[in-house]
């Protein structure tokens, strides 16, 4: 294994993993802190950040072709339709 390969194969993913672990510690700690605001939002934001790390780096969406990115994006956009229109009903009853 060349040093270049070692960097690309081992260290880069390891850094992402470390980031994930830190975020996990952060979110668990925040949930137990007394008297802090907007717990659900923070926990979901951290989950989204972890998801973004996995998608962009582990799944290499950052370097993927345009159509692959499009396919990834479409799922999220369409799921938002589901939430948007269902809650348009729930919230206005």
């Amino acid at each position: 294994m060349t040093p270049e390969q070692r960097r690309h194969l081992i260290y880069a993913p390891l850094r992402i993993w470390l980031g994930l672990c830190i975020l996990l510690g952060l979110t668990a700690t925040y949930a137990y802190l007394p008297h802090v605001p907007i717990k659900p939002i923070i926990s979901l934001l951290i989950a989204a950040a972890k998801g973004a790390l996995i998608v962009l780096f582990f799944m290499q969406l950052r370097k993927a072709e345009a159509i692959v990115r499009l396919a990834a994006l479409v799922g999220v956009i369409w799921a938002s339709f589901l939430f948007l229109f269902s809650f348009a009903d729930f919230l206005t009853r």
Binding site: A88, D89, R93
Partner: peptide
């Protein structure tokens, strides 16, 4: 086509606002 499904639910008790949008 993904944004019109509520027209199957006009009499179901869905909100009037949602019915309007759909």
């Amino acid at each position: 086509g993904f944004m019109v499904w509520g027209h199957h639910m006009f009499v179901s008790g869905q909100s009037a606002f949602a019915s309007l949008v759909f």
